[in-house]
Design a protein around this nucleic acid. Sequence first.
DNA 1: AAGACGAAAGTGGTTGA
DNA 2: TCAACAACTTTCGTCTT
Length: 319
Amino acid sequence: MAGEASGSKTTEEKEQSLTLEPCPECGSTVIYRDPTRGEIICGNCGIVISERYIDQGPEWRAFSSEEKEGRSRVGAPTTFAMHDKGLSTVIDRRDIDVYGNKLVPSRRAQIYRLRKWQIRSMVHNSVQRNLATAMSELDRLTSQLGIPRDIKETAAIIYRKALERRLVRGRTIDGVTAAAVYLACRLHHVPRALEEIATHTHAGRKELGRSIRLILHTSGITIPRPKPQDFIPRFGEDLRMSVNSQRRAIEVIDQAQAMGLTAGKDPTGMAAAALYIAGLIEGERRTQQEVAAAAHITEVTVRNRYKEMVQRLNLKVEV
DNA sequence: AAGACGAAAGTGGTTGA
DNA sequence: TCAACAACTTTCGTCTT
């Protein structure tokens, strides 16, 4: 379903996605891309973070709706999320030439042999075959989890590296793919719960955890530890809370961090409690249950963090 | 009736010997 | 490898709005 037509439509408006780095100015992780200007912009303070964003959308301007539908880049943008990066040559099965004429038998036999070796060299190589299944699994997983394209690309790269290091051997492709997705999310400061990914993959939670640790140890990737602030945009969005409240929640967390209240605590719990407090302050009250559900934790934990922070930070909260 | 609160017991993961 | 430990979860009864 997700064909090229829908792809070219979404690039039309400002596309929200998350980049590797939070805003250097205010630390916000809500980052927008503006393909028409080629800029990456902070959604919070509006600063232009980068002006060298590469537009992978259609190449030409369009003056009518038919043109708009018809235009595209010459060839799809290359992507790591396909086993051949989308660059392979395909030899058609139909035995006709470009003019639609039937091929003479000798020519036809030649094409047949070419195609045979073409396919052998592509997918019948075990590495390529592995990648092909992995990338389709990656497709499925990322679309189910609603993971943006650039994170998916990172996951694909992580998977390729793991495959090069022969880490996939003896493990399931699904498991390693899921692990790559998990790591990619953390790299992009959009951490997803292990649980969340585990429910959408065939691999068990245990295997997923093992794969993650294995990649982590052998590949030398350093993953930033998830910060409570990283969760605010997503949870806030799930709870349909305003940007104002989200910003307030981040302030609360900053204060708590300054007092050393966050050490050793579950960052999702901190984020949830901060959102709960922000809701009270900003008059966008959400129940502890709602907040807890958004963060995939229990209301008891929300309560404990909430109590701690109100007490230690001397917050005046109207109930 | 729904939401908030707190106590007590249980659980999975980390740490240090 | 194992036990200790802190944080989190589950469960349940009570209080407040």
